[in-house]
């Protein structure tokens, strides 16, 4: 079984983020890392390929400057190879543009199953995976908290507002996984060494037959017009608990007529 995992490489979320005052795009400096949200997809793919008795896990990523450090982490976990799309004309691409690029790259791997995260940690639109599925003419199941492959179909427990649904779909299909769906493994030393020589195919949009006008800031057809500080909420009264602070809480709730 061939599984493609979409993995986003993002700036370290622990570092304070910033928007470029000119372009209003997220400033991406320094090394990119594997988005934590995608570590679940990678782990899930490895487990499913294993359970299916073999098959290959291919990573697909779109990132600036030929960035591969996040991909290497996922390769060290055990993925076999990666496709990276990197092209200067992709700066400022919106989610639909990203989906067009990723869909074209995914097609090359001819997967039975495509995994992605429900949403990324930095842009978190959560629409890219479904857009990919539609562009590829495939079904999709989002918000998976459990995924099983039986023969030619996938069975998913999908998070709902009230609990969860059991959903079935024929392969090929795109599934998005929630955080915590599996416990991502830590790359072993051997894995890290092996990852260094695993194949990463780097493509431009021309290689994918995509026209520069469809992607990047020109293709985006949406623009950020302004970014400003939101109204700050003033902080209020602080009480250090000496054993009776609970009484102040009760008073406060009474004032609000909650009690």
């Amino acid at each position: 079984m061939n599984v493609v995992v979409c993995v986003k490489q993002i700036p370290d979320p622990a570092a304070p983020p910033a928007l470029d005052p000119g372009t209003k795009n997220l400033v991406r400096v320094g090394k990119l890392i594997l988005d934590d949200s995608d570590a679940y997809g990678v782990e899930m793919a490895l487990q499913l390929a294993d359970a299916a008795g073999g098959g290959e896990v291919t990573l697909v990523s779109m990132a600036p400057n030929g960035e591969t450090s996040g991909l290497r982490t996922a390769l060290a976990m055990g993925a076999a190879k990666a496709i990276l799309v990197s092209d200067d004309s992709l700066a400022g691409t919106d989610a639909l543009g990203t989906a067009k690029v990723l869909a074209a790259a995914i097609k090359r791997a001819e997967p039975d199953l495509i995994l992605a995260a429900t949403e990324s940690s930095d842009g978190y639109t959560g629409t890219t995976p479904v857009q990919i599925a539609e562009l590829l003419g495939l079904p999709s199941v989002t918000f998976a908290k459990k995924v099983e492959i039986t023969g030619n179909s996938v069975k998913v427990e999908r998070q709902t507002e009230a609990g969860y649904d059991e959903v079935e779909s024929p392969l090929p299909v795109l599934v998005t996984v929630t955080a915590g769906v599996v416990e991502p493994r830590y790359p072993s030393f051997k894995g890290i060494m092996a990852a260094k020589s695993k194949p990463v195919e780097t493509l431009t949009i021309a290689d994918l037959g995509i026209d520069a006008g469809q992607v990047g800031a020109t293709g985006a057809r949406q623009e950020i017009t302004d970014v400003s500080a939101s109204e700050e909420r003033a902080s209020g009264e602080i009480v250090v608990d000496e054993g009776d602070a609970y009484q102040r809480v009760i008073q406060f709730l009474e004032q609000l007529k909650v009690l």
């Binding site: 989610a95 959560g126 629409t127 890219t128 479904v130």
Partner: peptide
């Protein structure tokens, strides 16, 4: 912005080739 709302918007976006503004 629900499970299904986001799915429908994403599908429609790709179908009619219009982006989505989310969140």
């Amino acid at each position: 912005a629900t499970y299904d709302g986001r799915d429908i918007a994403g599908r429609l976006s790709a179908k009619i080739d219009r982006p989505v503004l989310t969140n």
